[in-house]
């Protein structure tokens, strides 16, 4: 057993443990913190697999951006725990029934499922030798050379979603004061200052 195995068990235990804590933590902020811990440990697992690019990307995208937004929203919410738990017993039978049905379906499905003796599909793009090429380059080749059109399509779909979200939530506030930087810079003493001679004891 090498050090990699030790770390595998450490990371997997922490990932599953914190995933359980995400749904069982009482405080939503704590739940988000456990989610972040789960992401970081998952990145550790990727590192052990030699997928260093994916590991770093997981932290940059999920921990650095997505989880920050989660945390933002959860912190801004004024969560009333008593109110949250008020309906708990009322809805418990319904929730338990739905959960039980799903579980039963899964049991039936996996009971009837037979494997045909291993997956025999060969990948369309051969998996490159990790010693010869860094995995950043390998992923780059796959995304930008072999599957460029799919990649572009995904980009356009995401852009559409983003524009849609902005259009739905954007409200122009007529009363808000806005600064036009161009106007601001174009101001000269002549247009912005007025000099008045004030006679003593009279005021303006």
């Amino acid at each position: 057993m090498g050090i990699a195995d030790l770390f595998f068990y450490l990371f997997s235990a922490l990932t599953t443990g914190s995933a359980v804590m995400v749904i069982s933590a009482r405080n939503p902020v704590h739940a988000v913190m456990f989610l972040i811990l789960a992401f970081i440990n998952a990145a550790g697992l990727f590192l052990l697999l030699g997928a260093e690019f994916l590991a770093m990307l997981l932290i940059i995208v999920y921990v650095g951006a997505v989880a920050v937004l989660f945390l933002f929203v959860v912190m801004m919410l004024d969560v009333d725990f008593a109110e949250l738990r008020a309906g708990y017993m009322k809805y418990f039978p319904l929730g338990a029934t739905i959960g039980f049905i799903l579980l039963a379906e899964l049991v039936v499905l996996f009971g009837a499922w037979k494997s045909d003796g291993g997956i025999s599909v060969t990948p369309k793009v051969p998996i490159p030798d990790t010693a010869a090429i860094t995995n950043t380059e390998a992923i780059g080749h796959v995304l930008y050379t072999d599957y460029i059109f799919y990649f572009e399509a995904v980009g356009i779909i995401l852009l559409t979603a983003m524009v849609g979200a902005i259009v739905l939530t954007f409200r122009q506030n007529e009363n808000a004061k806005r600064q036009n930087i161009g106007d601001q810079i174009a101001r000269t003493p002549e247009t912005s200052i007025e000099i008045k001679k004030v006679e003593t004891g009279k005021g303006i």
Binding site: V29, M33, I36, A43, E52, F53, M56, L57, I59, I60, V63, G64, A65, V68, L71, F72, M75, T134, T136
Partner: peptide, 25 residues
């Protein structure tokens, strides 16, 4: 001396914001 040095930098420095948000909250 890792291959994805720059990504490591971006990943770890994106965690810096947590110290501030958590401290503030």
């Amino acid at each position: 001396n890792i291959n994805v040095g720059i990504l490591y930098v971006l990943a770890i420095s994106s965690l810096e914001v947590y110290g501030i948000i958590i401290g503030g909250w």
